[in-house]
Design a protein around this nucleic acid. Structure first.
Ligand SMILES: Nc1ncnc2c1ncn2[C@@H]1O[C@H](COP(=O)(O)OP(=O)(O)OP(=O)(O)O)[C@@H](O)[C@H]1O
Length: 778
DNA sequence: GTCATTGGGATTTTT
DNA sequence: TCCCAATGAC
């Protein structure tokens, strides 16, 4: 079993017991060690499979781990508990949640449901929805939960009046979730922890049961999850955690590397194992990744090497806009497929934001290159899908008022705002929604004749669906919902232009339910809703079909591909504009880039675009500083004809910016007009510009309008351009510069070519030659 | 109660 | 650019 493993890997796999932390860089076999250790424990140490609990980051990772363990130790046969924190929480709460007053199949609220509930609360508490947006509140409350802070604690430590209000909302939110018999995502872990605290005997039982607890991707666990891990491993103290602090990319979700760095403190007497050999990537890729991540200050350095010497240089492609970027990616993919033995499934296109997938998709589609997209507008977030799921949740859980409110008048059944709010008042007085629905008399007196009739009819619909659900499987209930509500007609009438798409989604949901009903040994509504709620995007990723994969860097965590494209290597995108002001956030962006690079086995292709469409208008972009942090000799700048080498290489621009940014802040200085020359510390303006862009789009626009780019950092070549200078163009011949806008890659010149007319061109692509340099130079 | 129009906000990342 | 929520006319 230890065959093929290196020495520290073996040490970790065969570690006898007690807390073990494996810290190691990307591709060093952490996951493999964890998997093998599970098999080792069963086979060599005689540990019963059901006494093993392993946490993975996604259900997909769990599935793969389970498969591999089963391969190595057939007798394990899926008897180990391997799953995400959330699915493990659900599993425990399903059998123990009654102690906290929850039904076996409590409803799981997704982010949308939570927001709907928060919105209601904000309205009921008469707070300003601008200042307390459900979205913002949701993430604040989630943060509190993930840091293991109760509403009372938040209240006690609140400073501003707003903090207090947030604490109030938090407390009320918890009460209403409970009233609705529902938990949000965070509760799946928080309530498990609560269960263990309030019922020590339950905690004792579970921690007795799990002789060994293992955690993958430990750097992205949050304090709440740490509490859960500690509770579960308390009895035997056999915890094996693996992680890489340089790959921590979920701090915005409450994750903290402190869990790893403070391991010895939380689990005294722990053993530390480091893995230093990478088996995934060429050494060129590793060298690049190591160089980039070395720029992070807040890290414990580590060694990572590969004996896969050499490797193809990292290609850097420039495009004028995201469409061209998409085409270049597609063309390069086409060449890979034609010229190497790469299959489509060997290729992934990674990006920072989901919105970037669009341009790549368009390009791939035009050449009919099959692709799958992971994430983005999620299937289960589509309105029609959510409507139908809300019906199912409502059928399953009569107390779920959020789902009820969603479907009360969908499809339209003549119960408008007024009737609805009258009804909810009545329901509040009577205790539950379903009681109110079946009380004809009170309905009549509260809501009037017409509405009362409609409400009662709706109540009967729900009742009949509930009766059906007692015996039928999820698919049957779903089909009945669609039929009874004439949902297909509703979609067709509601908006004929989108009806086809939406109907397709409806059928896909039916399909999913049917598949579930056939495959699952518990085909009922409750288990189906549970599986839907826990499904992550990568879980649905197909490994079978041969297609190119598109996804965010976050989703690519833990995966590997021979060929990796990283699109949008631009300031403001990667690093993202919202992370530029804060060092910690900036370092997380760098880790993100590191994660992206280290997914690759054979080759990396970076692309960036000079212009990027955002909110419908094109905005300029500059090279990502991270690209500049890769040693120059590892990068091959591509682009052919359009990219004049006489002009400043864009990646150097990124480098320059970064270098200057890390020096002390430049003093304010007088503005100068562009043809007077350049200021030495124009960088500050560039930064300020990016910052302001992050702050407010409108303000940023104004800033551009007010003083354009004239004060930004200029390159050597740009220095030489000035209005009135004479230049020569390869095709157009001689001309005179009339106007200069932009900076760096985006430097645009308006040049008058006499009879050939006036052209506005990007300097980088134009291949201009200055004719009278002394006139242009300072 | 329903439908159309308008205006404002959104894109950072997700279990 | 697109999507939603709020507003107002019928
Ligand atoms: N001793 C080994 N010999 C050969 N290949 C190995 C060895 N250990 C790991 N590998 C391979 O290296 C690759 C990376 O392994 P694995 O995914 O376990 O690394 P990881 O540390 O979890 O990576 P990441 O941190 O990027 O998630 C896998 O393809 C794995 O099969």
């Amino acid at each position: 079993m230890l065959e093929g493993l290196n020495s520290p890997q073996r040490q970790a796999v065969s570690h006898p017991g007690g807390p073990l932390l494996v810290i190691a860089g990307a591709g060093s076999g952490k996951t493999r060690v964890l998997t093998t250790r599970i098999a080792w424990l069963i086979r060599e140490c005689g540990v019963a499979p059901e006494s093993i609990l392993a946490f993975t980051f996604t259900n997909k990772a769990a599935r793969e781990m389970r498969q591999r363990v089963d391969q190595m130790v057939p007798e394990a046969q899926g008897r180990c508990w391997i799953g995400t924190f959330h699915s493990t929480g659900v599993r425990i709460l399903r059998s123990e949640g009654h102690r906290l007053g929850y039904d076996r199949f409590f409803t799981i609220y997704d982010a949308d449901d939570s927001r709907a509930l928060l919105k209601k609360i904000v309205q009921d508490l008469e707070l300003d929805t601008k200042q307390y947006s459900p979205r913002q509140l949701g993430s604040e409350i989630s943060g509190h939960k993930n840091h293991f802070r109760s509403p009372e604690q938040v209240m006690a430590t609140s400073i501003t009046p707003r903090d207090q209000k947030v604490a109030e909302v938090y407390a009320e939110y918890g009460r209403r979730l409970r009233e609705n018999g529902a938990m949000d995502f965070d509760d799946l872990i928080a309530k498990t922890v609560e269960l263990f605290e309030d019922h020590r005997e339950v905690q004792e039982r579970y921690s007795q049961r799990f002789e060994h607890v293992l955690v993958d991707e430990f750097q992205d666990t949050n304090p709440l999850q740490l509490v859960m891990v500690r509770a579960l491993s308390a009895r035997h103290g056999n915890l094996c955690a693996v992680g890489d602090d340089d790959q921590s990319i979920y701090s915005w979700r409450g994750a903290t590397v402190e869990n790893m760095l403070g391991f010895e403190e939380y689990f005294p007497g722990s053993t530390l194992v480091r893995l230093e050999q990478n088996y995934r990537s060429t050494s060129l890729i590793l060298e690049a990744a190591n160089a980039v991540i070395a720029h992070n200050r807040r890290r414990k350095g580590k060694t990572l090497w590969s004996d896969r010497s050499g490797g193809a240089p990292i290609e850097l492609w420039w495009a004028e806009d995201e469409h061209e970027e998409g085409r270049k990616i597609r063309d390069r993919i086409g060449r890979l497929l034609a010229e190497t033995d790469a299959r489509r499934r060997d290729i992934v296109v990674l990006y920072r934001t989901n919105a970037q997938s669009r341009a790549v998709e368009d390009a791939l589609r035009r050449e009919s290159i099959p692709y799958q997209i992971v994430g983005g507008t999620r299937f289960y977030e589509r309105r029609e899908v959510r409507d139908l799921l809300a019906y199912l949740k409502c059928v399953q859980n009569p107390a779920d008022s959020v789902s009820f409110a969603r479907i009360l008048n969908v499809p339209k059944r003549g119960i408008g705002k007024t009737s609805a709010s009258r009804f909810f008042e009545l329901a509040q007085r009577m205790g539950t929604v379903s009681d109110a629905l079946s009380d004809r008399g009170r309905l009549l007196s509260s809501c009037g004749k017409a509405a009362a009739g409609r409400l009662a009819a709706f109540g009967q619909l729900l009742q009949s669906l509930r009766r059906l659900a007692e015996n039928a499987d999820a698919a049957a209930v779903l089909r009945q919902v669609i039929e009874a509500t004439k949902y297909e007609n509703y979609l067709r009438e509601d908006d004929p232009t989108t009806a086809d798409d939406r109907l397709e989604n409806v059928y896909e949901l039916v399909n999913a339910a049917e598949e579930f009903s056939v495959e699952s040994d518990e085909p009922g509504l409750g288990p189906f809703l549970e599986s839907v709620a826990l499904l992550a995007e990568v879980d649905k990723m197909s490994d079978e079909t041969d297609q190119v994969t598109l996804m965010t860097v976050h989703n690519a965590k833990g995966l590997e591909f021979p060929y990796v494209f990283i699109a949008g290597c631009e300031e403001g995108l990667l690093p993202h504009a919202s992370s530029l002001e804060d060092d910690d956030q900036l370092e997380e962006e760098r880790r993100l880039f590191y994660v992206a690079l280290t997914r690759a086995e054979e080759a990396v292709f970076l692309t960036a675009s000079a212009m990027r469409r955002r909110f419908g208008s094109s905005e300029p972009a500059a090279a990502s500083r991270f690209v500049g942090e890769i040693p120059e000799e590892l990068v091959a700048e591509m682009g052919g004809l359009a990219f004049g080498s006489r002009f400043q290489a864009p990646r150097s621009l990124g480098e320059r910016r970064w270098n200057s940014i890390s020096t002390s802040a430049p003093a304010k200085r007088p503005r100068r007009s562009r043809d007077q020359g350049v200021s030495a510390d124009a960088l500050a303006d560039a930064q300020a510009f990016l910052r302001s862009r992050a702050r407010s789009k409108a303000r940023a626009r104004k800033e551009v309008a007010d003083h354009g780019f004239e004060d930004h950092d200029l390159t050597q070549e740009e220095l030489c351009y000035r209005v009135g200078a004479r230049v020569e163009h390869e095709l157009l011949g001689e001309g005179v510069i009339e106007e200069i806008e932009g900076v760096g890659d985006l430097l645009r010149l308006t040049v008058s070519f006499g009879e050939r007319g006036r052209k506005r061109i990007l300097a980088r692509y134009a291949r201009l030659r200055l004719l009278d340099t002394e006139a242009g130079a300072q």
